[in-house]
Nucleic acid binder design. Structure first.
Lengths: 199, 199
DNA sequence: CTACAATTGTACTATGTAGTTCAATAATGT
DNA sequence: ACATTATTGAACTACATAGTACAATTGTAG
């Protein structure tokens, strides 16, 4: 009987989840390893047993998030199959942000904003996550196109880019303003445009 | 003859400009006072003579930027009086970013992304800057409306919000991806939408 | 020149930071 | 039981960090 690598490492998981939350709240650079350990009730040797260094933790956090995203375990539903789903997708971000008093932006965008030249491993992780989300959007618009429900001139991938940009911009602006009006207005306009492309 | 407060403090200015550049490049938290001083060839006592602390420096940097913005001394022209101007406004951001190898996002958005609860002075500074830019956009759309060149149903302020969101999102996404395709696609869609509202 | 304020250089303190060391303990297979 | 490996606790190192103290120097006004 081949023993599968044990995947039950509660301390490791707790560290990752705590780190994710702190990174989301205050960014990577403002979060020390010690703070993560204190909040996750873990010791230093646990940390450096599970992670090579802080950068490796950031990587692990992103991979953990990516896993949840792929398995649809996140509050944001990325299965977009109708206009209604797309609306829900947009407004879910608003809802999540409001639930946090508009104190935080996109957890991934926040990490991405701190990237500097040379941090290419982390950058690739984030690109992977972004790509997955963009693909969900693309698939929806491609589907519409195949069904002949979109004007011939439109490129489904470009529409996905557009949605993604509005989402990221909206989350950032809402965080800075500590209120989501601008975000909501932007979503409204984006949806009005997209629907105008239907035929 | 009343002596006006001397505004010629080359060391102070150099510190602010150096700090602005480093904040833009790597964010506030990743930039130490010592690094700013080394790069601006200034000493510690100069720093704490001109600034109360690091937060005060961030405030000063933002106020300096705000001054440049108001006096139209920045590479981005905020006097938007025609559709051509609006296009230029959008694409200037792309151009600036490309000139930096898509290694940086919005200098202000980058600082804003690092905000945490309680940093309300800095937040207000950023809101001031954002508001100024949003007003430039609003003015343009209001002007169109007054001239009867916009459909009656549209709210000029909402269009300004929309432009601003696309700009912020695009800059962030382009920085993370280290290329501006998604940003450019989004601008293209945003402009297509906005122009569709003309009558 | 002289007094006084503006400015700067150098050295310092206290604390936070990432990461290491290593012995102690727990778990596992034979 | 025994050996081996996985896991953890606690103290520690080396360095970076924000901010201070204060004397030395420069500029300026009478």
């Amino acid at each position: 009987m081949v023993k599968v690598k044990k995947e039950n490492q509660p301390a490791r998981l707790k560290i990752i989840q705590t780190a994710f939350d702190l990174f989301h709240k205050q960014g990577v650079n403002a979060t020390s390893v010690d703070e993560i350990l204190e909040k996750s009730q873990a010791g230093k040797s646990q940390f450096y047993y599970y992670f090579k260094n802080k950068e490796d933790l950031v990587h692990s956090v992103l991979m953990f998030f990516y896993g949840q995203l792929k398995n649809n375990e996140l509050p944001i539903n990325n299965k977009i199959e109708s206009w209604k789903d797309l609306e829900r997708w947009f407004y879910n971000f608003v809802g999540m942000q409001k639930a946090m008093n508009c104190d935080r932006g996109c957890p991934i965008g926040t990490i991405g904003s701190e990237l500097v030249t040379g941090q290419d491993l982390i950058r690739q992780d984030i690109k992977l996550i972004f790509e997955f989300t963009r693909n969900s959007l693309s698939r929806f618009f491609h589907g519409l196109k195949v069904k002949g429900e979109l004007k011939d001139s439109v490129d489904p991938d470009v529409l996905a880019d557009f949605c993604f940009t509005v989402m990221q911009g909206g989350l950032l602006v809402a965080k800075i303003n500590r209120e989501s009006d601008i975000f909501e207005n932007s979503i409204q306009q984006a949806l009005a445009y997209l629907k105008s492309l239907a035929k």
